[in-house]
Design a protein around this nucleic acid. Structure first.
Length: 1037
RNA sequence: GCGCAUGUGGUGAAAUUGGUAGACACGUCAGACUUAGGAUCUGAUGCCGCGAGGUGUGGGGGUUCGAGUCCCUCCAUGCGCACCA
């Protein structure tokens, strides 16, 4: 009886499905455990081996917890709205719903192949109206809420209206600190004023408070494509597709007021188990800083310039100001002399994406001609514009202190702005020093004060003088929450007279209408603006962004079929937080912040009982592709090769030179033969024509020229036969009296990696080939010929009879032909092998390239395990004898290791522990059911199919998925002595077996009595002996 | 540019708390069995050296009896940076 994984896996997958083995109930006496994978987007390319990495990890953990007696929720679904489907629709005319559906079917089939324990009855899709009804509903809750800074939580907007009616907004500042009420030009109003506002005026004000609000924002607008582009679709100011110019354009956008939650998002990080780096990324993204806003007068103007600084202590080191190119003040303060320059600069900046502006190493900027005045000493400070200052952060203006800030320093050096040193010897004149511990100099009333302490003094002073305020700032901006696209959730909003009215709940879901074209609407609006029945009803034409549906999906899994609520309070109270969330770091600051904010808002409004969605986060690394390349020899390669041969022939009587007039590659004059030899290399397809026309030229020739026209193809054909063949062939052509013109097949030549040196650095084209037709690095030539018809007649320049490909680690992507389909791997080795191999590759958190080499080892392990039970020739191996101490020790060592490793997500070492265990049992010739049965339970989370099969073959009737996890018995593991490593001066010299309960004195005697140690001590006496019980001994001499 | 992560044999990696570096596999080499082997089994395998021994965790420096692990610094690679999801 052999290990027939195909039958076994098929059989159990069917039986588990029929028995509803993965069905999870919301009602169980067992403790709950919620394991979640990050929401996948079902791309058209299907799953590649990189995708399941995290799913396998979470599946193992889920099954482990289930065996440990938990009621485990482990659901799966699809983040089904998204740009790729829409782009596909634009290119191919297929409705995104249709292509998405198809993609999901493929995804599902591929997932099923791997044997996951998902409860598919709970599947959700964000594009399903039954789902997005609730996305829209939550949006309405956000729209109908405001953030009360006093109670520090979201509340219904009606409560705010009641406050306004009673007392105006004096106690509740408008969140956006620059906003002024259009009618009054002020930020504050009384109850009476409120009552006097029109509905529109009232609604405009309320919009400034809502958690989901409508405003205006700059986007990357591409006129030629008629669409808005993502930052990474813009390269060097032009669109990635088509290379059309891209400019900034203000468009009406929806936003989420996530900034109101900045402090709570920071605070919440202390209560959740994310990696430190993840918390750090979120903290940096939120970017809370403490400082001051200081207002400067502008010389000869009524305008004032307000800057935000985190270092008010450096106020006397300010040598210039830098304002963002979008800054409102530019127009009014720019002097006539600088106007043209400023305008040119702004035009340049408009073409640049924010990313480019921040990444730019080149220093750019221009002077406005204006001067700000230092409020303390009246010093004139030139005001510059530069792209490194972003309008959205702080006040969009900074005071530059070159001696303390690297970027300011570079800017000052570049534009020759004199630098004031306020930190004495801490500044070396070469580079900035951002210290806070220097004593201030050149700083008026601050002189002699340590910078750190001076901050507080300055802030107090500027507040006294009324020229500034203490200010906490956040780098985080409100989250843009709309897209000018089709394939997303429609907003349940109706616009009437410029007022946004929420659709009543009873009209949800507002379904996405059918469109015939996915082209953008007028003025940068989305495709929905093209639909009459949509615009006639004044519906919002923007749609929600990709992260809308994924911001709350973990709640829907708890209660996926609820038609009356997004998730019942009973269900969310039972399941609570996601106990384990597995996914990539790429979501660090997007999805993971947004979903945390949504959770907090829903918590504030009383819909759920917890305010952090994910208790523990494990980041899975990416599986990268290991690309393979073939090298096609090109024209330059042939020339290089020919030159090499000609050089080697070393015909002294020939004078090698380039013929510049005739376009001939090589021209020789032979004194001996008294003739000129012209060697031309060209491709077979054009050689005959060139040869004839050259012959025509020769009629008037006085140099007695012999033409040698060699095609690239023939040159390479000779090269393939060997260097000597090529060499003597060319020699014979040169010595011949006759003209020569190649006549061979037109074909491509590919050179194996080590042959490339004959063709020069640019003599070949590097082409991706499908990794699936390469065995390791050796190309399957026949498969390549079949892969592309153009390669059918290709020739290969081999090394040792093989074609060796080049390799490179890249992102795994269809485009790079380096994807490996899990279906193929599962088909060849089985799901159990695939699961264990993915884990065996290395720690889940780490990124690594996929290599199929090595999977044999894992497959071999499963076969070895199988042979402990059944042997192909000997039949049944297992017996019911009593286990001895050695066997029990192996088992319990394994129980301990597997439990620990699984619990800490160290699945790779877990797999090796199984291997060690099986190796040791084979060594002990142990086939005892008592041992093997427990081992199977341990193995179930990793390799469920083989475990279930053998479990039943041992005579069990029940399902192994709910078996009782073996209990560790420490007493089997107790040791009495240990082989200690003994070092002399830190260098390992020998090992000695010493009892574990030995005391310092005993150990010293034993060690000093050892011959090897005596030898290494070289007669010297020991200074001390370090003895760490159970670890090691070190003799210091 | 800013932020984060990662660098250990020919390869994937292990070393959980500062305590025997390279577990477990792949590959390679040698051997056994076999009509056969892309099956199975046995042994060897970081590097240098015949050996004694030396040396070795990206480079340089430091702390320590002892550093892959801690600190400083430099280098390389990968990921993210707000409309990809």
């Amino acid at each position: 009886m052999e290990y027939n994984f195909r039958d076994i896996e098929k059989k159990w997958q069917e039986q588990w499905k029929a028995a509803g083995a993965y069905k999870v109930s919301n009602d169980s006496p067992k403790p709950k455990f919620y394991v979640l994978d990050m929401f996948p987007y079902p791309s058209g390319a299907g799953l590649h081996v990189g995708h399941p990495l995290g799913y396998i990890a979470s599946d193992i953990y889920s099954r482990f917890k289930r065996l440990k007696g938990f009621n485990v929720l482990h659901p799966m679904g699809y983040d089904a709205f998204g740009l790729p489907a829409e782009q596909y629709a634009i290119d191919h005319g297929v409705h995104p719903a249709v292509s998405t559906d198809k993609n999901i079917t493929t995804f599902r089939r591929q997932l099923d192949n791997i044997g996951f324990c998902f409860d598919w009855d709970r599947e959700i899709r964000t594009s399903d109206p039954g789902y997005y009804k609730w996305t829209q509903w939550i949006f309405l809750q956000l729209f109908n809420s405001w953030y009360n800074r006093k109670s520090k939580k979201a509340e219904h907007i009606d409560a705010l209206v009641a406050i306004f009616e009673k007392e105006g907004n004096a106690g509740y500042e408008i969140p956006h600190d620059k906003y002024q009420i259009a009618k009054t030009g002020k930020r504050v109003f009384t109850a009476a004023e409120w009552a006097g506002f029109t509905e529109k005026e009232q609604q405009d004000i309320l919009m400034e408070y809502r958690l989901a609000y409508c405003g205006y924002g700059e986007v990357n607008w591409c006129e030629a494509l008629g669409t808005v582009l993502a930052n990474d679709e813009v390269i060097n100011g032009v669109s990635e597709r088509g290379g059309h110019p891209v400019v900034k354009k203000k468009l009406r956008q929806w936003y989420l007021r996530i900034t109101e939650y900045a402090d709570r998002l920071l605070e919440g990080l202390d209560r959740i188990e994310f990696s430190e780096s993840m918390k750090e990324m979120q903290t940096n993204w939120i970017g809370k800083s403490y400082g001051a806003e200081i207002t400067f007068n502008v010389k000869g103007s009524n305008e004032t310039l307000t800057v935000y600084t985190t270092r008010p202590d450096t106020i006397f080191g300010v040598d210039f100001m830098v304002i963002a190119p979008e800054h409102d003040l530019i127009e009014s303060i720019t002097t006539p002399g600088q106007k043209q320059q400023v305008e040119d600069y702004i035009t340049y900046v408009k073409s640049r994406s924010e990313r480019e502006r921040m990444a730019e190493k080149k220093i750019t900027g221009t002077f406005t001609g204006a001067y700000a005045l230092n409020p303390f000493n009246g010093q004139e400070i030139p005001v510059w514009i530069s792209e490194y200052v972003l309008a959205g952060y702080g006040t969009g203006a900074i005071m530059a202190v070159p001696c303390g800030d690297e970027r300011d320093h570079k800017f000052a050096q570049h534009f020759n702005i004199p630098i004031t040193n306020i930190i004495g010897e801490h500044y070396n004149g070469q580079e900035a020093n951002p210290t806070k511990d220097a004593k201030l100099e050149n700083s008026d009333f601050l002189n002699g004060m340590v910078m750190r302490n001076a901050m507080e003094v300055v802030i107090k002073k500027i507040e006294e003088m009324g020229i500034g305020v203490r200010k906490v700032n956040f780098k985080m901006r409100d989250a843009a929450f709309s897209r000018q696209r089709y394939w997303g959730e429609p907003f349940p909003i109706v616009w009437k007279n410029g007022i946004a009215y929420p659709l009543p709940e009873s009209e949800l879901p507002l379904e996405l209408p059918h469109v015939d074209s996915y082209k953008p609407g007028p003025e940068g609006e989305g495709p929905l603006a093209n639909i009459g029945e949509w615009t006639n009803r004044y519906f919002e034409t923007n749609t929600m962004p990709g992260y809308a549906g994924s911001s709350w999906y973990f709640l829907r899994y708890m209660d996926p079929n609820n038609n009356t609520e997004f998730c019942s309070r009973k269900a969310s109270d039972y399941w609570g937080q996601v106990d384990l969330y597995i996914g990539g770091t790429e979501h660090a600051v997007g999805h993971l912040l947004y979903s945390r904010m949504w959770t907090k808002a829903l918590f504030d409004l009383g819909y759920i009982g917890h305010d952090e969605p994910y208790k523990k986060l494990v980041n899975q690394g990416m599986i990268q592709g290991s690309s393979r390349f073939v090298y096609r020899i090109n024209e330059r390669g042939c020339e290089h090769l020919c030159a090499k041969v000609l050089g080697e022939i070393q015909l002294e009587s020939f004078d090698l030179k380039k013929d510049h007039n005739g376009g001939i590659d090589f021209t020789f004059f032979s004194k001996e033969l008294n003739k000129t030899i012209a060697v031309e290399l060209t491709s077979q397809s054009t050689i005959a024509k060139k040869f004839e026309s050259r012959k025509e030229h020769l009629k008037a020739d006085t140099h007695n020229t012999t033409l040698i026209f060699i095609s690239n193809e023939e040159l390479l054909a000779k090269y393939v036969q060997g260097w000597d063949v090529l060499n003597s062939w060319i020699k014979s052509l040169l010595n011949s009296e006759k003209h020569y013109c190649s006549d061979t097949l037109n074909r491509q030549y590919f050179a194996s990696e080590s042959k490339l040196k004959d063709f020069g650095a640019e003599g070949f084209d590097k082409l991706h080939v499908d990794v699936n037709i390469v065995d390791g690095v050796e190309l399957n030539i026949e498969a390549l010929k079949k892969w592309r018809s153009e390669y059918e007649s290709a020739e290969f320049i081999l090394e040792d009879g093989k074609y060796i490909c080049g390799t490179e680690v890249e992102k795994m992507s269809k485009r790079l032909y380096n994807t490996v389909n899990p279906d193929d791997v599962v088909n060849k080795y089985g799901a159990d092998t695939f699961r264990m191999y993915e884990m065996f590759l290395g720690p889940v958190e780490q990124s690594k390239p996929w290599e199929t080499k090595g999977i044999e080892g894992v497959h071999r392990f499963l076969k070895k395990l199988w042979r402990l039970f059944y042997d192909e020739t000997k039949g049944r191996m297992w017996n019911e004898e009593k286990a001895n101490a050695a066997e029990l020790k192996v088992l319990h060592k394994t129980i301990k290791k597997i439990e620990e490793d699984t619990e800490r997500f160290s699945f790779n070492t877990g797999v090796s522990a199984f291997m060690v265990c099986v190796n040791e049992l084979i060594e002990l010739k142990c086939n005892k059911k008592e041992i093997l049965e427990s081992l199977l339970i341990l193995l179930t989370p990793y390799a469920p199919h083989i475990s279930e099969e053998l479990w039943h073959l041992l005579g069990n009737e029940s399902c192994i998925l709910d078996a009782e996890y073996p209990k560790l018995n420490q007493s089997y593991l107790v040791e009495s002595s240990k082989e200690y490593p003994i070092s002399v001066n830190g260098k390992l010299r020998t090992t000695i077996e010493i009892a574990l309960d030995a005391q310092q004195d005993d150990v010293e005697k034993i060690v000093l009595g050892n011959d090897v140690i005596q030898k290494w001590m070289e007669g010297k006496t020991h200074k001390k002996i370090i003895y760490v019980k159970g670890k090691m001994v070190n003799v210091v001499v």
